[in-house]
Amino acid sequence: MFTGIVEVIGTVIEYKQTDNDEGTGGGVSLTIGDSAEILTDVHLGDSISTNGVCLTVTHFDKEKGQFKVGIAPETLRRTNLGDLRTGSKVNLERAVSGETRLGGHIVQGHVDTIATITKKSSDENALNFTFQLRDPKYIHYVVEKGFIAVDGTSLTVTDVDYKTAEFSVMLVSYTQGKVVISQKKEGDTVNIEVDLTGKLIEQQIELVLTSQLENDGPLANFVKKIVDQKLSALGK
């Protein structure tokens, strides 16, 4: 679990295709540098959010400020990590501890889809971004003034267009220097994780409604009554 508050911007040192025997199932091995700040208490097997994706540390070198992770094929399909190359910058955040302040929101590090930057503009010292989701179905979990994780950064949604599957956010001056999003341009992609709360509410409602309809509960009886009234009005 993460908070969406980026701790440091790392640099990809090596991006290498791997074989099945390297533990990534034919995926990718990624070595990231400029990371000394988050390696002070690192252990093998720890989780580090890399551009919003929860990845497991398989090797680290505190003196060099580097660590290594493996990326499985499913992760490459779901995220834009396959676009990383040597020299790419990435947002990094360690998993929360018992003493971590929840400055952003609860982020799992399980990316739902990617989005393309369709508009980038300045508003005095702030930056406005508009994104379009690759998978439109996730726009239903995005609400104005709600939380969303963009490349692992907890941001507040400023506008939503459900017809075009687009939403907007604003980056204040301070945040711009702490995350990689500000360096991106129109046409670039980002990893998106929608707020978990919406998914949980949807699942609970679906389960309750399904149970009511399958077990002749009050809802099923109400629906039947409405249908009978409509049919009666039609003379059937």
Results as ranks from 00 to 15, higher is better:
residue 84 L to F: 13
residue 232 S to Y: 07
residue 41 D to C: 11
residue 129 F to G: 02
residue 191 N to R: 04
residue 135 D to V: 02
residue 111 V to I: 15
residue 133 L to C: 07
residue 77 R to K: 15
residue 54 C to G: 10
residue 33 G to A: 10
residue 157 V to N: 01
residue 108 Q to Y: 11
residue 204 Q to T: 15
residue 202 E to L: 12
residue 123 D to Y: 09
residue 81 L to M: 02
residue 151 D to E: 12
residue 204 Q to I: 15
residue 77 R to N: 14
residue 67 F to G: 00
residue 169 V to W: 05
residue 184 K to R: 15
residue 170 M to N: 08
residue 79 T to D: 12
residue 88 S to P: 00
residue 210 T to Y: 04
residue 200 L to N: 09
residue 6 V to C: 00
residue 150 V to S: 11
residue 177 G to W: 05
residue 57 V to D: 04
residue 45 G to M: 13
residue 148 I to Q: 05
residue 142 V to E: 01
residue 110 H to L: 04
residue 177 G to T: 13
residue 163 K to C: 06
residue 28 V to H: 07
residue 153 T to K: 06
residue 176 Q to P: 12
residue 81 L to P: 00
residue 70 G to R: 05
residue 1 M to T: 04
residue 221 N to A: 05
residue 234 L to M: 14
residue 157 V to T: 13
residue 170 M to P: 00
residue 213 L to K: 04
residue 175 T to P: 02
residue 167 F to C: 03
residue 118 T to C: 13
residue 69 V to Y: 01
residue 199 K to A: 09
residue 83 D to G: 02
residue 24 T to I: 03
residue 117 I to W: 10
residue 68 K to S: 09
residue 105 H to K: 10
residue 29 S to Y: 14
residue 196 L to E: 14
residue 236 K to C: 08
residue 44 L to T: 08
residue 101 R to N: 06
residue 156 T to S: 04
residue 11 T to M: 00
residue 1 M to D: 00
residue 126 A to L: 12
residue 144 E to G: 04
residue 33 G to V: 11
residue 28 V to E: 10
residue 147 F to S: 13
residue 118 T to Y: 11
residue 109 G to E: 03
residue 232 S to V: 09
residue 151 D to S: 10
residue 225 K to H: 15
residue 124 E to H: 13
residue 39 L to T: 03
residue 221 N to G: 15
residue 182 S to H: 10
residue 52 G to S: 08
residue 11 T to I: 00
residue 91 N to I: 00
residue 215 N to K: 11
residue 89 K to Q: 14
residue 23 G to K: 05
residue 70 G to D: 07
residue 134 R to C: 01
residue 95 A to C: 09
residue 3 T to I: 06
residue 128 N to F: 08
residue 65 G to F: 08
residue 102 L to V: 12
residue 70 G to W: 07
residue 135 D to L: 12
residue 117 I to H: 06
